[in-house]
Design a binder for these strands. Structure first.
Lengths: 239, 239
DNA sequence: CGAGCTGTTGACATTGCTCAAATTTCGTGG
DNA sequence: CCACGAAATTTGAGCAATGTCAACAGCTCG
């Protein structure tokens, strides 16, 4: 199924101590005393835009943490219809395993850096350092809550509400600085459509409609400015 | 928000040793030596059909295991639109917590029996018996994989495919005996519609269409017979 | 400068929704 | 066991949101 893993660029070693996302990632639960053990078992890999990290159903050998860039998770139907089940950002854990195979495919959106851990090593880490398992459990709890929220969006929100919810989510969780009322959308319209259960045309038309109403500005298809954040919040669920 | 928890019927004590679902539930990871500890902290409660177990946003004090019956998980939009994010069956864990509040509401579908554990006790159990944390992690992995699958269904499948996938899922996971090509649907059409992101009319019409095509028999709205399981499987994702 | 990709816009088709009414099921009491 | 009323389900007719197909525009890269 996947030659993809062989296409990975060659491993490079980075330093866990200076890792930008250490505080957000699973590794935050590794105390100073075990950092050597952690450093010994992780490696780093870079991916080019669009590159496949692994495909759904591939035998799972590694788990990953996102160090930089953004990753899309995809599930496919036999006829090619695609659902993007999530976008991962730095600090997120990557590698949901069901029956020792990946439960979704993962692809780099832009340039991506991953921190890789072989599963056998991860399991040893989990038994050696109880807080890591706790951290992982708490992270999957959060992920599950996010999945429930996404089901509500997919099943019951209108196209407009889907787009607005998506934009607000990005702003809330990935806003650069406190006062910055703007967000980047590194992914394509196809990715957004497949994430929200829409077509690219509907996504595009909805962006245009929101722009014409003055709810957003679109200086560039991948950058959104909110002139009035509260007005956008009103549009999210109030119909 | 919720007077519901006060409406619970009075706790009764059952025996963990004779528990029907012990092998499927979280408790399976509790070894014989710790069963006393387990028995000491669990209680049982019964719920009548339709009764609210807890609501989304309620402060979370208890976690549950389903002992008998079926439970629906619900999320609501301010205007009343509802998404059923899952149906839980005996052995399932209930009580996803985000920020010390329940992430969804839970309601009994038919008569339900729950095994209840106070969260503080559950946490003690988790630290005392490492395999329990492992089991819980593995259960939430499964749940997350199921959630991804449901996103694919909600975002990309047609009404017909949604219904067929739903029926096949029930058959695969809840079929009574090996050869039994029939399933029960204890929940209402409203529940099914809200689970699949459809309206009750569409659900009903789709059932009728499947019946007229001979793919299913409907001796009763809550019982489905599959005269030819393979034909149904073909209809699931092949468009 | 032209090819190709991504995004936008337009015209039309269709799935699934809305509103309304008929029918079946089910609980209750006689 | 049967009758009655309420609730759940099914069916019908028309409609609207969103999808499909097609053309066009803007940008990037060679």
């Amino acid at each position: 199924m996947s030659e993809s893993s062989k296409l990975m660029q060659k491993p490079t070693h980075h330093n866990c101590d200076t890792c930008d996302v250490r505080h957000k990632a699973m590794c935050a639960a590794v105390d100073a005393e075990h950092t050597d053990q952690l450093r010994a078992i992780v490696s780093h890999r870079d991916y080019a835009p669009g590159q496949v990290i692994f495909e759904e159903g591939d035998p799972a050998d590694y788990a990953f943490n996102i160090s930089a860039g953004e990753v899309r998770l995809c599930k496919l139907l036999p006829d090619g219809r695609r659902q993007v089940t999530g976008f991962l950002t730095p600090g997120d854990f990557l590698g949901l395993i069901a029956d020792s195979a990946y439960a979704y495919g993962a692809e780099a959106i832009g340039q991506v850096e991953l921190c890789c851990i072989q599963l056998s090593n991860l399991e040893r880490l989990l038994s050696d350092i109880p807080p890591v398992r706790e951290k992982l459990l708490s992270m999957s709890r959060d992920e599950l809550a996010a999945a429930q929220e996404q089901m509500l969006l997919l099943g019951r929100k209108t196209a407009r509400e889907k787009i607005v919810s998506f934009l607000l989510y990005r702003h809330k969780h990935l806003g650069r600085t406190e006062g910055d009322a703007s967000i980047d959308l590194p992914m394509s319209r196809v990715d957004i459509a497949d994430y929200l259960g829409l077509t690219i045309e509907t996504v595009s038309r909805t962006f245009t409609a929101l722009r014409e109403e003055g709810l957003i500005e679109l200086p560039h298809p991948h950058h959104v400015i909110f002139p009035n954040l509260d007005a956008v919040r009103d549009a999210a669920e109030a119909g």
